[in-house]
């Protein structure tokens, strides 16, 4: 099972790389077709070319779905092998994070018929997979503090989805900065990008709250205190507060634009800091 899991991992890595390549092809293609189209005043050949570009986009989506399937398979095989949720160390968490980012990205791609988002979210997922190859992948037994199957599985999988949503918000925010004045024709309109980021935060924010609360429940059981200002939990709280601040500014003051996009990028920085902070700050989350 462990080997199957590793094969599935490699397959998902390849599929994700291919997907990113196809998204790029789709983008570059759309761009050049539009340029040609502008020069020719829109001839028949343009629409044929557009069809080809469109199918590159479709294949990109299919490749992403494949990557998601392989990644899920890798995590499932690992679960079968170890007999517990596949999210108890940094290797497993990296895979799960990539999984969360891909699934939420796909959701937005389907819901908004928008492929450009993947250009920024897939590199984050690929980065996590590449990072996971640098850390030991063998299945290790759980130390006593982690021996709580239910909380381990729920606390961490909710966190993975929250991080994935924030990665999508980040992707939308970066694209927004390129597209601020609606000058880039092959990107979705700025208002759409802004809305996607906002939607992603709407999904991620309650999930992050749930991660914090489940963490507090677990800490109450295992450490005897629901809140200890442990670096990882404090970083998670900061992340949550940043997105909370974004939501307040956006909902109450209609705050949009480059500033809001910048804050989402800072928020994703805080998310990444939460992910890795325990490596250089120590604390009770030392196993993850």
């Amino acid at each position: 099972m462990y080997e199957l899991s590793q094969y599935a991992f490699v397959a998902s890595f390849a599929a994700l790389g291919l997907a990113l390549f196809l998204y790029l092809a789709n983008l570059v293609g759309a761009r050049s077709v539009q340029l040609i189209g502008a020069a020719n005043g829109g001839s028949i050949s343009t629409s044929t070319a557009l069809g080809a570009v469109d199918s590159a986009g479709r294949y990109a989506t299919i490749a992403t779905i494949n990557a998601l399937v392989f990644l899920s398979a890798s995590l499932i095989f690992r679960t079968i092998d170890s007999g517990r949720g596949p999210i108890s160390n940094m290797y497993e968490f990296s895979l799960a994070f990539a999984w969360g980012a891909v699934i939420i990205c796909l959701y937005f791609e389907v819901a908004y018929r928008l492929r450009a988002l993947a250009l920024l979210v897939l590199p984050v997922a690929l980065g996590m997979l590449a990072y996971s190859t640098t850390i030991p992948s063998e299945i290790r037994p759980l130390v006593p503090a982690l021996q709580n199957d239910l909380l381990l599985t729920v606390h961490v999988s909710v966190a993975v989805l929250a991080y994935g949503a924030f990665a999508v918000a980040f992707g939308g925010a970066v694209l927004y900065l390129f597209q601020r004045h609606d000058t880039v024709r092959w990107l979705p309109r700025a208002a759409v990008l802004d809305e996607i980021s906002y939607r992603a935060v709407l999904i991620g924010f309650p999930l992050m709250a749930m991660t914090l609360i489940l963490g507090a429940v677990w800490a109450h059981i295992a450490w005897g205190s629901y809140w200890t200002w442990d670096p990882k939990e404090t970083a998670a709280l900061v992340t949550w507060l940043i997105y909370g601040g974004y939501l307040h500014a956006r909902v109450l003051r209609e705050w949009r634009g480059a500033g809001a996009a910048g804050l989402l990028i800072v928020g994703f920085g805080a998310t990444m800091f939460t992910l890795w902070g325990n490596y250089f700050l120590g604390g009770l989350h030392s196993y993850a």
Binding site: F205, P206, A209, I213, A216, V217, H220, W223, G224, Y226
Partner: peptide, 27 residues
């Protein structure tokens, strides 16, 4: 570690209200 925390149930009730509130509001 010995702990007596008479406030813990308030914390859990608040946590449930928080999640309920966020889900109602955003979902």
């Amino acid at each position: 570690k010995v702990v007596k925390n008479p406030g813990i149930n308030i914390i859990w009730i608040a946590s449930i209200l928080m999640l309920l509130g966020l889900v109602m509001l955003f979902y």
